[in-house]
């Protein structure tokens, strides 16, 4: 069951929209923040809140990159691999990260510390290459700086 606080936050999001379903993405984000991912029974609970069939919730979850149906690492590290970042070494950075962490993009380290990934343009092309750790952008990177950032993660 989602917590009382999360349920209250979902209701507040629903109140902002002309139709209940307009708050579905916000609700999924809130629930994912509580559980770390979206377990099937939680998606079913969200479906109940919104008066939807669970399948309707699953298809929305599967459409968007930020929703996860498997447990994730404590931190999301996503390297931008769009054209500008690639021109300035973004894909080299991802290769080094994969070797350093011993996982491929799309995987989580064994200690559950980091889920590594790559993303399309994050809108920081003036500071390429760059990556995103959770909600924070890190710009104008080289390997030394990237390693420091990784080592600083709990």
């Amino acid at each position: 069951m989602v917590s009382v606080a999360t349920r209250a936050a979902i209701d507040a999001e629903i109140a902002k929209m002309p139709e209940k379903r307009g708050a579905l993405l916000a609700a999924l984000r809130l629930v994912q923040a509580e559980y770390g991912y979206l377990p099937p029974e939680v998606m079913e609970e969200v479906a109940q809140i919104f008066g939807l069939h669970p399948t309707e919730v699953f298809e929305v979850v599967s459409f968007y990159n930020h929703f996860h149906v498997q447990p994730r690492g404590r931190h999301e590290v996503n390297v931008c691999t769009s054209l500008t970042c690639s021109l300035r070494g973004g894909r080299g950075l991802l290769r080094q990260l994969q070797a350093y962490l011993g996982v491929r993009a799309g995987q989580t380290t064994e200690d559950g510390r980091i889920s590594l990934g790559h993303e399309e343009c994050l809108g920081a092309c003036g500071n390429a290459p760059m990556l995103r750790i959770d909600d924070t952008y890190h710009l104008d990177l080289d390997w030394v700086r990237t390693q420091q950032l990784l080592d600083g993660l709990e």
Binding site: S82, L83, E120, C121, G123, A124, C125, G126
Partner: peptide, 11 residues
């Protein structure tokens, strides 16, 4: 929803 690769003005 600025997402076009190469675009970062709206941010």
């Amino acid at each position: 929803d600025e997402s076009e690769p190469g675009s970062f003005k709206d941010r």
